[in-house]
Computed example of a mutant assay.
Amino acid sequence: MDDLLDDFRVYGLAAGHSQRTITAREQTIGRLARDLDLTTATQNQLTSWLAALVAADGRPLARSSRATYRAHLAAFYGWMQDTEHRTDNPAMKLPKPRVPRAVPHPVTPDEVTRILAACSDPRARMTRAYVLLAAYEGLRVHEVAKVRGEDIAHGEIRIHGKGGTDSTVPLHPSVELLASRMPARGWWFPTTAERAGHVSRVSVSQAIKRAMVRAGVNGTPHSLRHHFGTQVLRATGGDLRTTQRALRHASPATTAIYTQVADDRLRSAVNGIPM
């Protein structure tokens, strides 16, 4: 089994998958291997295995999590078949959980101000930078962790995003000021551990969450990215194409969900109906 997982990891690296994706898939397949023989597992056995999964606290697994597990199985057994480790693909017709489309839950501009105020202590200097990048450039926590001085140029920030894709977004004035105080080369947020590199996405997420708690603001670190997307949509008068570009969504359908929280014209129209 170890050799099989090693081969699957090498395949993921060759395909350019992120380390996060590779690790998540390995963990899922490793968990599966404790219950079933990977080389002989049937579709019915995989279906029963998925159905029996529960969260760490014993509660039923969320549909989104179940869908993620299914995707990991599909990737693994698709690779098994392609590389002739198996002649069939038992994951091909596994049930597909219907995942409800998420609705953004942005923090408000006032709440962003409060979160930044909660980072006024010099010891929270890095956390303040995390918040600025998430709230005013729309970076995800793993993207914040990987920012380098070389990514800032010509009034833009280059973002190393999901799936290994790079894109640029104009610098917000507050981030432009931040950049003038950060290293021009190398990681903005180097790790303090023995290994060289940048801080982890978990460290970024936890630091932002602590600042939100200090500020008395409900939400998650990703709510700062939702703030960015909502404000761009409003500032452009509902221009989905520009907002899609700013958020770096591959599909306009993903951006369209922001209209559910930022359609000021609809709100004004409804409020204007005579009583």
Results as ranks from 00 to 15, higher is better:
42 T>Q: 13
117 A>D: 14
10 V>L: 14
243 T>Y: 04
112 V>L: 04
197 G>F: 06
6 D>Y: 09
186 G>T: 06
236 T>P: 09
166 D>M: 09
16 G>P: 10
28 T>I: 05
268 S>K: 14
38 L>W: 03
36 L>H: 07
76 F>A: 03
259 T>V: 07
13 L>H: 03
106 P>Q: 15
237 G>H: 06
74 A>N: 15
216 G>K: 06
49 W>C: 01
43 Q>E: 13
130 Y>M: 07
151 D>K: 02
15 A>M: 15
245 R>S: 11
257 I>R: 10
121 D>M: 06
93 K>E: 06
203 S>P: 15
75 A>Y: 05
246 A>R: 02
176 E>Q: 12
216 G>W: 04
271 N>G: 10
94 L>T: 00
171 L>D: 01
74 A>C: 12
75 A>K: 04
114 R>F: 06
268 S>P: 11
148 R>N: 07
81 Q>N: 09
191 T>H: 08
168 T>I: 09
200 S>M: 11
144 V>I: 15
134 A>H: 04
72 H>C: 00
269 A>P: 03
77 Y>V: 01
192 T>L: 15
111 E>P: 01
146 K>E: 03
119 C>K: 04
241 R>M: 13
88 D>N: 06
40 T>L: 10
203 S>N: 13
232 V>M: 08
181 R>E: 05
273 I>N: 11
209 K>Q: 13
225 R>Y: 07
124 A>T: 08
166 D>T: 10
169 V>D: 00
165 T>V: 15
41 A>Y: 04
51 A>V: 14
179 A>H: 00
112 V>R: 01
62 A>Y: 14
206 Q>M: 15
186 G>R: 07
104 P>M: 14
194 E>W: 14
79 W>V: 03
220 T>D: 04
202 V>N: 15
118 A>V: 00
207 A>E: 01
194 E>R: 10
10 V>C: 13
31 R>F: 08
64 S>W: 08
106 P>N: 13
159 I>S: 00
14 A>M: 09
239 D>F: 02
264 D>M: 13
39 T>S: 14
275 M>L: 12
241 R>H: 11
223 S>T: 07
70 R>S: 01
95 P>W: 12
266 L>H: 13
31 R>H: 13
9 R>W: 13
173 P>G: 06
43 Q>F: 07
244 Q>V: 07
132 L>G: 02
65 S>A: 13
75 A>Q: 10
146 K>G: 01
59 R>F: 11
83 T>V: 11
26 E>N: 10
263 D>W: 03
201 R>C: 09
129 A>M: 01
15 A>F: 11
140 R>E: 07
191 T>E: 07
225 R>K: 12
166 D>H: 11
216 G>D: 07
185 R>F: 05
204 V>Y: 04
241 R>T: 10
94 L>I: 02
11 Y>Q: 14
197 G>Q: 05
232 V>K: 00
220 T>P: 04
96 K>G: 05
97 P>E: 00
184 A>D: 02
197 G>W: 07
90 P>T: 01
23 T>A: 12
265 R>P: 09
226 H>D: 11
29 I>E: 00
235 A>F: 05
232 V>F: 01
242 T>K: 12
241 R>I: 12
141 V>E: 11
58 G>P: 09
234 R>E: 09
155 G>V: 06
15 A>G: 08
266 L>D: 11
96 K>E: 08
176 E>Y: 03
77 Y>G: 00
